[in-house]
């Protein structure tokens, strides 16, 4: 086993290596595209499911099934649909992470505190106005929860996709390459970096937003 010190040194070397940083950037770019899709499709579908009972009856189970599927399980389908390319990876991220956002958004919409609804109704809020001015903002803590989980799920799906697609530039391919060459220290250094990036983004962005929302909405 390589020593932690050695891995630490490798991590630092990698972080100053242009080729490595380029690979990280390609992976992050894919993640961003996929996650943008997750935000739009996940929240959009979730709002529809929460708003319209009949849609929820038909598609609600599907959203839960989507959410139950491990991200990696989408990769073969993605490869069949798109080939061994970037689109397949983005598709994997999208499907691996959209489910949790749908489920959280729709339950956030359905579980708005009755008191909030009553107050809104006595002040004349109805229909679409009630939905956009009261129900959606009231659901924000749940939506943010969903997005934070989706980030973690998406990151796993991204790695699964990149590892299996293999041919495209990115962290997954780097992992594959060093594994084939049996370079244990470098492999571990990459893994440390992958975990660190995920934790850093979670802590710097998602945790902060979640904390802010929770204290403001009083759901903490």
């Amino acid at each position: 086993m390589p020593s932690p010190l050695m891995i630490g040194r490798l991590v630092v070397t990698n972080m100053t290596d242009a080729a490595f940083l380029f690979a990280v950037a390609s992976s992050l770019r894919r993640m961003m595209i996929g996650f943008t899709g997750v935000v739009i499709i996940g929240i959009g579908t979730g709002l529809l499911l929460g708003r319209f009972r009949f849609l929820d009856d038909v598609l609600g189970t599907l959203a839960i099934a989507l959410h139950a599927m491990p991200g990696a399980a989408w990769v073969p389908l993605a490869i069949v649909l798109f080939g061994l390319n970037e689109s397949a990876v983005i598709f994997t991220v999208l499907l691996g992470a959209a489910g949790i956002v749908m489920v959280n958004t729709s339950s956030g919409v359905k579980e708005v505190p009755p008191l909030v609804l009553r107050a809104a109704k006595t002040m004349g809020a109805r229909g679409a106005t009630l939905f956009w001015h009261v129900i959606v903002p009231a659901a924000i803590p749940r939506i943010v929860d969903g997005l934070r989980l989706a980030w973690a799920f998406g990151w796993r799906a991204l790695m699964a996709g990149e590892l299996m697609v293999g041919s495209i530039q990115g962290m997954g391919r780097l992992l594959n390459d060093v594994a084939k060459q049996r370079q244990m220290p470098q492999l571990l250094a990459f893994m440390v970096i992958i975990a660190t990036i995920s934790v850093a983004i979670d802590t710097l962005i998602f945790k902060r937003v979640e904390k802010m929302v929770k204290s403001k909405w009083g759901t903490a």
Partner: peptide, 11 residues
């Protein structure tokens, strides 16, 4: 109605 808890909108 003024409710027992404020029922203000937190956002």
């Amino acid at each position: 109605v003024v409710f027992q808890e404020s029922a203000l909108f937190p956002w």
